[in-house]
Design a protein around this nucleic acid. Structure first.
Lengths: 209, 209
DNA sequence: CCTGTTATGGCACCGGGTGCCAGTAAGAGG
DNA sequence: CCTCTTACTGGCACCCGGTGCCATAACAGG
């Protein structure tokens, strides 16, 4: 199971460059790490454990992941780029919060065979304290995507009160829906996301203008 | 500047107990630490630096704070208890989101002379990446206070979708308001909190339904 | 002064993370 | 085929946060 010079382990569609090939890949290390995390728990698994289980040196692990906390995040940046494109493609006449709701729900749609893997990933991210803490740093980029969109729509800067508040609040709604999803084995993620947004909206609606 | 056996450094109104007196206090260590954080930055300040600046051993530092990340949190648990009481005292006829908004705004009211200290504290918590990450773990308790209240009001369990979503979203709104406050030297925190909630409500209101 | 109690802080140790650097596996070009 | 360049590997030493252990110091009460 080695990465070759032609696949994306060498960089996005880049030409075959000179130099030694990478000995493994993020995906492969993720698999090894996840297995160990499930057996012994995240805290009980050392980077040394992961490295030697993957047949690499501890030092090399840190060339694939900036930290142990980064392991479960896959290609999150790529996903965010996808969400950004999805938002950019919304019809301009749609109300702001409607547009965001649909984009967030849409963004979390995926083929059914990916559900278990995604569930495992998110169980770690939202369940393990250290990872939960770290997620805040990653989610800042998620919020930035929403805030940028809300800023454009309202003609404000992304870090103004309204865009920033919408972004923070929507992240909260999304995380709440995810927690609900992880807690119930056969729930539908997208329905929960949708229900969450609608629930919050109606909670506000019945709070007297 | 020694704690005596009679003040709360020995425990909440407990009798004067036997045993050696504590050599310092959380508040005192916080001051020392804050000064160093501001001079060199949080990451550049080691626990050893704080300890020796305070004239105690490194080991002793960890008897006052479970971790370096805990330093800026003061008596957060006590504050949460206050917020819980504040919520419990809300008239039952007030709409749910209204009650929460008022409680959150109210909860953040404080005498003007405390503003600079509070600002400094929050600048660390929301500005330093490591502390920002750690805050998620602390804020879980904040969310629990809101979720418990929302659960009681709606007759649901606190970890059901609606209460949990409201709690997550309100935390988001509060953090956004805090960030705004920290960014502008002479803004009013409570007004920003209030404005944030109202902004989100009207964003939802103009999204059809 | 003795006893039980509580706080201190040194020591050794663990684990995440980093700078450094010598080695090693590749492609490119003579 | 040999060499040059490129880039990945991984060992080593080190830093720092955090913990278990334990001897010792300071206190209250008898």
């Amino acid at each position: 199971m080695h990465a070759t010079n032609t696949d994306d382990a060498r960089g996005r569609g880049a030409r075959v460059r000179a130099g030694r090939r990478r000995i493994t890949s993020r995906a492969e290390l993720e698999q090894v790490a996840f297995d160990l995390f499930e057996q012994r728990g995240f805290e009980q698994t050392t980077v040394e454990d992961i490295a030697s289980a993957a047949g690499i040196g501890r030092r090399t692990f840190f060339r694939y992941f900036a930290s142990k906390n980064e392991v479960p995040w896959g290609d999150f940046d790529g996903e965010l780029a996808r969400m950004r494109r999805r938002l950019a493609a919304t019809p301009p006449q749609a109300p702001l919060m409607e547009a965001i709701r649909q984009a967030v729900v849409d963004f979390n749609k995926m083929p059914a065979e990916q559900w278990p893997a995604h569930r495992r990933r998110m169980t770690f991210i939202l369940g393990v304290p250290a990872l939960q803490a770290h997620s805040t740093l990653r989610f800042a980029a998620w919020r930035a995507v929403i805030a940028d969109f809300a800023g454009q729509r309202t003609g404000q800067r992304p870090d103004d009160l309204l865009p920033s508040t919408i972004a923070h609040a929507m992240l909260g709604v999304a995380v709440a829906a995810y927690e609900q999803w992880l807690a119930s084995p056969d729930a539908d993620l997208c329905e929960l996301l949708d229900a969450g947004v609608r629930a919050l909206r109606s909670a506000f609606a019945s709070s007297g203008e």
